[in-house]
Computed example of a mutant assay.
Amino acid sequence: MKIPYLRTFILELTEEATQLRSDIEGEVANQDVHLPVMSPKLPGRFYYLFGKPIDTQGRQEELRNREKAHELYLEVKSEVESCLSYLKERREDDPYRSILSRMLYQLRHGHEAEIPTFEL
């Protein structure tokens, strides 16, 4: 509705549309017609990384101590955030990120060829 051309188009559609709620008044009766808009998303590459294991054996007291539980939470949060930032950096530098480049690689090297990825 914020784009002028689309706003005019939607208002025209609303005026032309059959009013199904003609016996109702107020805000419910004055709703604009909204057409669903879908755009398919091309399949991307899936990036994942298992971070370092966090040992929790023998740390049962941290369930009862709020400060120690918060420290454990911050440790887990830090590890997850570092893994995500690493993967985001690698994703930006990935030459085979797009489906087109992956398809071209398989055309050149055969369907069974594994598309290269980055080293950990």
Rank of each mutant, 00 (worst) to 15 (best):
residue 2 K to N: 12
residue 5 Y to T: 11
residue 5 Y to L: 13
residue 6 L to Q: 11
residue 6 L to S: 07
residue 7 R to Q: 12
residue 7 R to I: 00
residue 9 F to V: 06
residue 10 I to R: 15
residue 14 T to D: 08
residue 15 E to C: 07
residue 15 E to F: 10
residue 15 E to D: 12
residue 16 E to R: 12
residue 17 A to T: 03
residue 18 T to N: 10
residue 19 Q to E: 14
residue 20 L to W: 07
residue 20 L to Y: 09
residue 21 R to W: 03
residue 21 R to C: 03
residue 21 R to P: 00
residue 22 S to W: 11
residue 23 D to V: 01
residue 24 I to A: 05
residue 24 I to S: 01
residue 25 E to R: 01
residue 25 E to Q: 01
residue 26 G to T: 04
residue 26 G to D: 06
residue 27 E to F: 00
residue 28 V to K: 13
residue 28 V to E: 15
residue 28 V to Q: 10
residue 29 A to F: 05
residue 29 A to R: 14
residue 29 A to M: 07
residue 30 N to M: 06
residue 30 N to E: 14
residue 32 D to V: 15
residue 32 D to L: 15
residue 34 H to C: 12
residue 34 H to N: 07
residue 36 P to H: 05
residue 36 P to I: 02
residue 36 P to Q: 04
residue 38 M to V: 03
residue 38 M to N: 10
residue 38 M to I: 05
residue 39 S to R: 10
residue 39 S to T: 04
residue 40 P to R: 07
residue 42 L to K: 06
residue 43 P to A: 11
residue 43 P to Y: 10
residue 44 G to Y: 06
residue 45 R to Y: 03
residue 46 F to G: 10
residue 46 F to Y: 09
residue 47 Y to P: 11
residue 47 Y to N: 10
residue 48 Y to C: 07
residue 49 L to R: 14
residue 50 F to D: 07
residue 50 F to I: 08
residue 50 F to W: 15
residue 50 F to A: 04
residue 51 G to D: 05
residue 52 K to E: 13
residue 52 K to I: 00
residue 53 P to G: 02
residue 53 P to S: 02
residue 55 D to Y: 12
residue 55 D to T: 04
residue 55 D to W: 12
residue 55 D to M: 02
residue 56 T to S: 04
residue 57 Q to T: 11
residue 59 R to M: 11
residue 60 Q to M: 05
residue 60 Q to W: 11
residue 62 E to F: 02
residue 64 R to L: 13
residue 64 R to S: 08
residue 64 R to D: 06
residue 65 N to P: 01
residue 65 N to Y: 02
residue 66 R to H: 03
residue 67 E to V: 01
residue 69 A to W: 02
residue 70 H to W: 03
residue 70 H to E: 12
residue 71 E to D: 11
residue 71 E to V: 04
residue 74 L to E: 14
residue 75 E to R: 09
residue 76 V to Y: 14
residue 76 V to S: 09
residue 79 E to V: 02
residue 79 E to A: 14
residue 80 V to I: 15
residue 81 E to M: 07
residue 82 S to R: 14
residue 82 S to L: 12
residue 83 C to P: 02
residue 84 L to Q: 10
residue 84 L to F: 12
residue 84 L to M: 15
residue 85 S to L: 14
residue 85 S to D: 14
residue 85 S to E: 14
residue 86 Y to C: 09
residue 86 Y to W: 12
residue 86 Y to G: 09
residue 87 L to P: 05
residue 87 L to I: 05
residue 89 E to I: 05
residue 90 R to E: 15
residue 91 R to T: 06
residue 91 R to V: 08
residue 92 E to Q: 14
residue 93 D to V: 09
residue 94 D to T: 07
residue 94 D to E: 13
residue 94 D to S: 13
residue 94 D to Q: 12
residue 96 Y to W: 13
residue 98 S to I: 02
residue 98 S to M: 06
residue 99 I to V: 06
residue 99 I to M: 11
residue 101 S to Q: 10
residue 101 S to F: 03
residue 102 R to Y: 09
residue 102 R to C: 11
residue 102 R to T: 01
residue 103 M to G: 00
residue 103 M to W: 05
residue 103 M to F: 08
residue 105 Y to R: 03
residue 106 Q to H: 04
residue 106 Q to Y: 01
residue 108 R to M: 03
residue 108 R to S: 04
residue 108 R to L: 05
residue 108 R to W: 08
residue 108 R to V: 04
residue 110 G to R: 01
residue 110 G to T: 01
